[in-house]
C-alpha cells in the first residue's frame, strides 16, 4: 500500500514540473512591461532598469527560469509586482477561502448528486426520473456566471435574503465565533450552490448508472430473494458498492471545480484564488500568476492522488501494482 502511494506521489512530480515550466514560459512571452506598474514614465530609464534588475526581469530568460525554479523549490515565490508584497503572503490570505468554497461545493456536489442518482435509479422510467433528468440536463448546460447572476438578481436583489457578494460582513471580525460562522455560511450559500450544482448533475447521472448496474447483480437479487426489505437491500447492499466508483469522480471533478471557482469567485467577489488569478493576469503580475497556477495544479494533482488512494483502500479488487 505504502509503495503504491509513494509511486503515485513520485509520478506526480514530473507532472507538476512540466506544468510550472509551461506556465513560466507562456507568461514570460507576454507583451507588457510589469515595471510600468511601479513607476511613472518620467523616471529615468536607467532607474527603471535598476528596478527591473531588482525584480529579476533583466536577466536572459533561461537564467530567469533557473533562478525562479530554485526559488520555487525553496518555497520562495518572489514578490508580487502589483501588490507590493510577498506572493506567499497573498496566497496565505486567499487559498483558505478557495479551499473552503471548493470543499463545500464538492460536498454539495456529492450529496446532491448521490441523492439524485438514487432517486432516479430507483424510480427509473417514472415521471420523477424524467423530470430530474431534464432538470439536471438544463443545470448542466448553464453558464455558471449566468446562473450566479440570476441568483443574485432573484435571491439577493429582489428577495434580499442572502448577501450578493463577498465572504463576510464588514464587521465580521468583531462577531462572536458562532455569529461569524453563520455570517460566512450565509455568504457561502450562493457561490457553493452555483459551483456545486452543475457537477452534481453529472455525479447524479454517474451514480444512477452505477446503482443500476449493482442492482442487477446476483448478490442484490439474493438479498431480495431472502425477503429483506427494499430499504435494507438498497441501503445496505447496493448503495455501498455503487458508491465505490463515485470516488474516482472526486479526482475528476477537482479541475472542474477549480476552473469554475475562477468564474464563481469573480461573480460573487469571493476573495479567493480564482479572483486573484484574474486580477494577477490583468496586471501582468508574473510571480502571482505562476504561483496561482502552481497551487491549482498541486491541488488537482493532490486531489487525484487522494481519490486514487481512497479508491484503492475501498475497493480491494485494485492491485497496488
Amino acid at each position: 500500500m505504502l509503495r503504491y502511494i509513494s509511486r503515485r506521489v513520485l509520478s506526480a512530480v514530473p507532472l507538476l514540473f512540466g506544468l510550472l515550466t509551461i506556465t513560466f514560459f507562456i507568461i514570460r512571452l507576454a507583451p507588457g512591461d510589469p515595471v510600468s506598474l511601479y513607476i511613472q514614465s518620467d523616471v529615468d530609464p536607467q532607474y527603471a532598469n535598476n528596478l527591473r534588475e531588482a525584480l529579476g526581469l533583466a536577466d536572459p530568460l533561461p537564467v530567469q527560469y533557473v533562478k525562479w525554479l530554485k526559488g520555487t523549490l525553496t518555497g520562495e515565490l518572489g514578490m508580487s509586482f502589483s501588490k507590493h508584497t510577498e506572493v506567499t503572503r497573498i496566497l496565505a490570505q486567499t487559498i483558505p477561502n478557495t479551499i473552503l468554497l471548493t470543499f463545500f461545493a464538492l460536498c454539495f456536489n456529492f450529496i446532491l448528486g448521490i441523492i439524485i442518482g438514487i432517486i432516479t435509479a430507483l424510480k427509473r422510467g417514472s415521471a420523477v426520473d424524467h423530470a430530474v433528468n431534464i432538470t439536471s440536463l438544463f443545470v448542466y448546460s448553464m453558464p455558471e456566471f449566468w446562473l450566479g447572476l440570476m441568483l443574485i438578481l432573484g435571491v439577493s436583489l429582489h428577495l434580499g435574503i442572502l448577501p450578493a457578494s463577498g465572504m463576510h460582513a464588514p464587521m465580521a471580525k468583531y462577531l462572536s465565533m458562532p455569529e461569524y460562522v453563520w455570517d460566512v455560511f450565509k455568504h457561502m450559500i450562493l457561490p457553493v450552490f452555483v459551483l456545486g450544482v452543475a457537477s452534481a448533475a453529472a455525479t447524479g447521472r454517474y451514480m444512477r448508472g452505477s446503482l443500476l448496474e449493482v442492482i442487477n447483480q446476483d448478490y442484490v437479487r439474493t438479498a431480495r430473494a431472502k425477503g429483506l426489505s427494499e430499504f435494507l437491500v438498497i441501503g445496505k447492499h447496493a448503495l455501498r458498492n455503487a458508491l465505490i466508483p463515485i470516488i474516482t469522480l472526486l479526482g475528476l471533478s477537482l479541475p472542474f471545480l477549480l476552473g469554475g471557482a475562477v468564474i464563481v469567485e469573480t461573480v460573487f467577489s469571493w476573495p479567493g484564488m480564482g479572483k486573484l488569478t484574474i486580477d494577477a493576469i490583468f496586471s501582468r503580475d508574473y510571480p502571482l500568476i505562476i504561483a496561482c497556477t502552481m497551487v491549482s495544479g498541486v491541488m488537482v494533482i493532490l486531489g487525484n492522488l487522494v481519490a486514487d488512494v481512497l479508491y484503492a483502500l475501498v475497493d480491494p479488487r485494485i492491485r497496488y501494482e
Binding site: F256, G259, G260, V262, T293, S296, G297
Partner: peptide, 8 residues
C-alpha cells in the same frame, strides 16, 4: 495538460 484547470 489535464492537471491544469483548463480555464487557467
Amino acid at each position: 495538460l489535464l492537471a491544469f484547470p483548463a480555464l487557467f
